[in-house]
Computed example of a mutant assay.
Amino acid sequence: MLSTTLNRRLDHVFHIGDGAGANRIGGTLEEDQACALAVSWMEEAGLEVELDERGNVVGRLRGTKPDLPEVWTGSHLDSVPRGGRLDGALGVVAGLEAVMAVGRSERTLGVVVFRDEETGCHGSRWRARSAPLPGFYVELHVEQGPVLASAGAPLGVVTSIAGIVRCTREFSGRADHAGTTPMSARRDALTAAAEYVLEVRDRAAAIDGAVATVGQLEVKPGAANVIPESARVTVDARAPDLERLDRLIAALALEDAHYRIPPAAMSEQVRAVLGEEVERLGLTVVELPSGAGHDAAPLAAAGVEAGMLFVRSLNGGASHCPEEHSSDEDIALAVQVLTAALRRLSNPK
């Protein structure tokens, strides 16, 4: 059964900010308020709280052997506009509950709140290059997709976090009158861009596990009665490993991409521990890659033994929207697995 404290804290975080859904954009007062709330919970639990130069929060329960590498759990508290109740917040709130359930261990346990995850994992990337890191990091997160629901599985163990490449493409034409220019005489920039969008879809679909999206489109001059003279699109391309990401980049001619995050493989050790604890509950272990970026990726790239546990997303896998939902029963199972995994990692044999 899911604890009332966990549910109450999730609600408290969710209702920070105005408007429908979660509205705690990175770098805003609302994100600050959510982090301050987490600090108050950590202090109430007796944790030592660190606030680093980037604003990341780490609450520590000191171990009996403090020289050993630390074990952290957590996530982020910022959101997209009109986001969901569980994205990020679940990892922080459940992480604190799990650490307190484990209690004092040989290794120091930590609960971390990374800042500004939604626009590029800025807090965790800063921490990975600028401040001390744990030996282990286990992040609990909603899946944000339909795979686990389709498999009938409440939990999933993440194998890797997809690499991401973003790039803009510009198409030029000639502005002319929409009514007097024959179709055969047009140089329509938007038509060329539309053909490219379909090409992006088809070429990504030809690579197993890869995805690509054109999510931004800017057309000029932008008048209903003027043939577009220019069109600019932004491509987001993702793949679960470097080999497929390189193939995708080549297929879409994105070699000059301005934004790149490499794929991150999750720790075999942490994956094994999570899988064993899932099996201990009588559940089938489902492994899957994450197509979304997460704070575990920069830590893994920096050498941390990082792993992730996904909770089944319902409502068709809806996320980044108010319809995001996971059942209390699934979340309770996830907290059990997280707690058991932290207990094992923080008390090495």
Results as ranks from 00 to 15, higher is better:
residue 137 Y to N: 12
residue 138 V to H: 02
residue 138 V to P: 00
residue 140 L to T: 02
residue 142 V to Y: 00
residue 142 V to A: 01
residue 142 V to S: 00
residue 143 E to P: 05
residue 143 E to H: 08
residue 143 E to D: 08
residue 144 Q to E: 14
residue 146 P to N: 06
residue 148 L to Q: 00
residue 148 L to S: 06
residue 151 A to R: 15
residue 155 L to R: 02
residue 157 V to R: 01
residue 158 V to F: 05
residue 159 T to M: 07
residue 161 I to D: 02
residue 161 I to Y: 05
residue 162 A to Q: 01
residue 163 G to Q: 04
residue 164 I to W: 01
residue 165 V to N: 04
residue 165 V to Q: 03
residue 166 R to D: 07
residue 171 F to S: 04
residue 171 F to I: 09
residue 172 S to T: 14
residue 180 T to Q: 13
residue 181 T to E: 09
residue 181 T to S: 12
residue 181 T to H: 11
residue 184 S to G: 08
residue 184 S to K: 10
residue 185 A to H: 14
residue 185 A to C: 12
residue 190 L to I: 08
residue 192 A to D: 15
residue 192 A to T: 13
residue 193 A to R: 02
residue 194 A to Y: 01
residue 195 E to T: 05
residue 198 L to S: 10
residue 198 L to V: 08
residue 199 E to N: 11
residue 201 R to L: 00
residue 201 R to F: 02
residue 202 D to F: 03
residue 203 R to H: 04
residue 205 A to Y: 03
residue 207 I to S: 01
residue 210 A to W: 03
residue 214 V to P: 07
residue 214 V to T: 10
residue 216 Q to E: 15
residue 218 E to M: 07
residue 218 E to R: 14
residue 219 V to F: 04
residue 220 K to W: 10
residue 220 K to D: 11
residue 221 P to L: 08
residue 222 G to E: 03
residue 223 A to V: 13
residue 223 A to G: 05
residue 224 A to H: 12
residue 226 V to P: 02
residue 228 P to H: 08
residue 229 E to C: 09
residue 230 S to Q: 13
residue 230 S to E: 13
residue 232 R to W: 02
residue 232 R to P: 02
residue 232 R to N: 12
residue 233 V to R: 01
residue 235 V to L: 11
residue 236 D to I: 11
residue 236 D to S: 11
residue 240 P to K: 07
residue 242 L to V: 13
residue 242 L to N: 07
residue 243 E to P: 00
residue 243 E to S: 14
residue 244 R to T: 15
residue 245 L to E: 01
residue 245 L to Y: 08
residue 247 R to G: 14
residue 248 L to Q: 01
residue 248 L to P: 00
residue 249 I to Y: 05
residue 249 I to T: 14
residue 252 L to F: 05
residue 252 L to R: 01
residue 253 A to K: 14
residue 254 L to M: 15
residue 255 E to Y: 00
residue 256 D to L: 02
residue 256 D to H: 12
residue 257 A to P: 03
